[in-house]
Amino acid sequence: MSDLQNVKPAFAARVATTIGQASGLVQKLATPWLTQLVLRIALAVPFWKSGILKWQGFLQLNDTAIDLFTDEFKLHLPGGPYPFPAPAVIAFLSACGEVGFPVLLVFGFGTRFAALGLLLMTCIIELTVPEGWPIHITWAAMALGIAAWGPGAISIDHLLSRATNRL
């Protein structure tokens, strides 16, 4: 009976040690600067891909982008759905945000502002396509994380912050 009693604590100690070592390895791999960089890129990609499809040339939207906001997209509010007001203007602003904010995020410049912009866009997208909430909540979580913890060490914001603190 005493051998069995000694085996249980030894096994538990080995399991605890292994879990501790694995946790340490994960913590070393998931450094804050890397996590923040990947988070910024992950949020930027879907918006960039959507935004780039809306442009025909420099500051010129394609007809499909305007048609989407005129005919397809509706705001799903109580008593609705309702059409977007000034669909050409909304399409233009949306396309600018979908291209501009991701660029800011990837470079880490005006990062918290860009994350807030994409969070607001995500809220409007959710009102437009409510069945897409599983993806939208992910975008919102990423935007909130970026807004809360900033861009990280690999960013223009970080470089500017270090430069201004030295002056």
Rank of each mutant, 00 (worst) to 15 (best):
S2Q: 13
D3N: 10
L4H: 09
Q5W: 02
A10D: 13
F11W: 13
A13I: 14
T18D: 07
I19Q: 05
G20H: 11
G20P: 03
S23V: 03
L25Y: 08
V26K: 03
L29E: 15
A30Y: 15
T31Q: 11
T31S: 15
P32E: 15
W33I: 08
Q36R: 15
Q36T: 06
V38M: 11
L39Q: 14
I41T: 12
L43Y: 03
V45S: 08
P46E: 03
P46M: 03
P46C: 12
P46K: 08
F47D: 00
W48C: 03
S50K: 13
S50D: 10
I52C: 06
I52L: 08
F58H: 08
F58Y: 05
L59A: 11
L59R: 13
L61W: 03
D63V: 06
D63M: 02
D63I: 03
T64C: 06
T64H: 11
I66Q: 03
T70P: 01
T70M: 04
D71Q: 10
F73E: 00
F73I: 13
K74E: 15
L75C: 05
H76S: 07
L77T: 09
L77Y: 13
G79C: 04
G80W: 15
P81W: 15
F84H: 11
F84V: 08
P85Q: 07
P85S: 11
P87Q: 08
F92T: 07
F92K: 12
L93M: 14
L93H: 12
S94M: 08
S94D: 10
C96P: 01
G100P: 01
G100M: 10
F101Y: 15
P102F: 08
P102G: 05
V103K: 04
V103C: 02
F107G: 11
F107M: 11
F109D: 00
G110I: 10
G110V: 05
T111I: 01
R112Y: 01
R112V: 02
A114H: 00
A115G: 13
L116H: 09
G117D: 09
L119E: 01
L119H: 05
C123S: 09
C123E: 01
I124S: 08
I125A: 14
I125E: 00
E126R: 07
T128A: 12
E131H: 04
G132D: 13
G132H: 09
P134M: 10
I135V: 13
I135Q: 07
I137A: 13
T138H: 11
T138Y: 15
W139K: 04
W139M: 09
A140R: 04
A140L: 12
M142P: 01
I146V: 14
A147V: 00
A148G: 07
A148K: 04
P151L: 00
G152D: 10
I154Q: 09
R162T: 09
R162S: 10
A163H: 02
T164M: 06
T164F: 01
R166M: 15
